[in-house]
Amino acid sequence: MDQNEYLYFLRRALDGMVSALEELGDELANTAPPQTGANSPYAITYHCMAVAQYWIGHILAGRPVDRDRDSEFTARGTVTDLKGSLGPLFDQLRDDLLDVEGLTVPRNTAPASFEGPDRDLSCLGVQLHVLEELAQHHGQVETARDVLLNGGM
């Protein structure tokens, strides 16, 4: 797999989420839509960055990653700070993927509590899972943006 092309698609998803946050501004970006159990667009985007960091950095590359998954869904902050952390994240992910071979076994296994796929994955499977998560959450952030910009309707 061409890792640069893979990272291009991850970046498109995260850039799209950040673009939606910029449309909302800090206050609305940190506001959850009125639907029961909804998370703020900021928290969803923050979660996606943690997903990429954990699954690629820890599961694939074997790098220690300190993750508090539950706190990702209550994360708050400024859009500017979140956007500023994308460059360093992608520099790290690029380094993490240097020695990853598609059908080999990842260096680590995720705990079942992280709600990943319910089967053992190859490195390629882990990468597809990250892309799956970012793609679905990109749509979720855009839907939340639309709801929040239209007064919660």
Results as ranks from 00 to 15, higher is better:
D26C: 06
D26S: 09
D26Q: 04
D26F: 08
E27D: 13
E27V: 11
L28S: 06
A29S: 15
N30P: 10
A32E: 07
A32C: 06
P33I: 12
P33W: 12
Q35C: 07
Q35M: 13
T36P: 10
G37I: 09
A38E: 11
N39V: 08
N39A: 14
P41E: 12
P41R: 12
Y42W: 13
Y42F: 15
A43F: 10
A43M: 09
A43Q: 09
I44N: 07
Y46K: 00
H47L: 06
C48Y: 05
M49S: 02
A50M: 10
V51H: 06
A52W: 09
Y54H: 11
W55D: 00
W55Y: 14
W55N: 01
W55G: 01
I56N: 01
I56G: 03
I56T: 04
I59N: 01
L60D: 01
L60P: 00
R63K: 15
R63F: 06
R63L: 12
P64Q: 05
V65R: 10
V65F: 12
R67E: 10
D68S: 12
D68L: 09
R69P: 02
R69F: 03
S71C: 02
E72I: 09
E72S: 08
E72V: 07
F73L: 11
T74Q: 13
T74N: 09
T74D: 11
A75T: 04
A75P: 05
R76I: 12
G77V: 07
T78R: 03
T78I: 06
T78F: 04
T78E: 02
V79K: 04
T80R: 14
T80I: 12
T80K: 15
D81M: 08
D81F: 04
D81A: 15
L82M: 04
L82N: 04
S85V: 07
L86I: 01
L86W: 00
L86T: 03
L86P: 04
G87K: 08
G87E: 08
G87Y: 01
G87T: 08
P88Y: 01
P88Q: 01
L89E: 00
L89Y: 02
F90P: 02
D91Y: 02
D91R: 01
Q92S: 10
Q92V: 06
R94W: 02
R94N: 06
D95E: 14
D95G: 07
D96H: 03
D96Y: 06
L97R: 08
L97V: 11
L97E: 08
L98M: 13
D99L: 06
D99V: 00
V100S: 02
V100F: 01
V100K: 00
E101T: 14
E101G: 03
E101V: 15
G102N: 13
G102L: 14
G102W: 13
L103N: 13
L103Y: 08
L103Q: 08
T104E: 12
P106Q: 07
R107P: 01
R107L: 10
N108H: 14
N108G: 05
N108R: 15
N108K: 15
N108P: 04
P111V: 09
P111C: 06
P111M: 10
A112W: 04
F114K: 03
F114Y: 15
E115Q: 11
E115T: 00
E115G: 05
G116P: 07
D118A: 13
D120V: 08
D120G: 09
L121P: 00
L121T: 03
L121F: 03
S122H: 06
S122E: 01
S122D: 07
L124P: 03
G125E: 03
G125W: 05
G125T: 07
G125S: 05
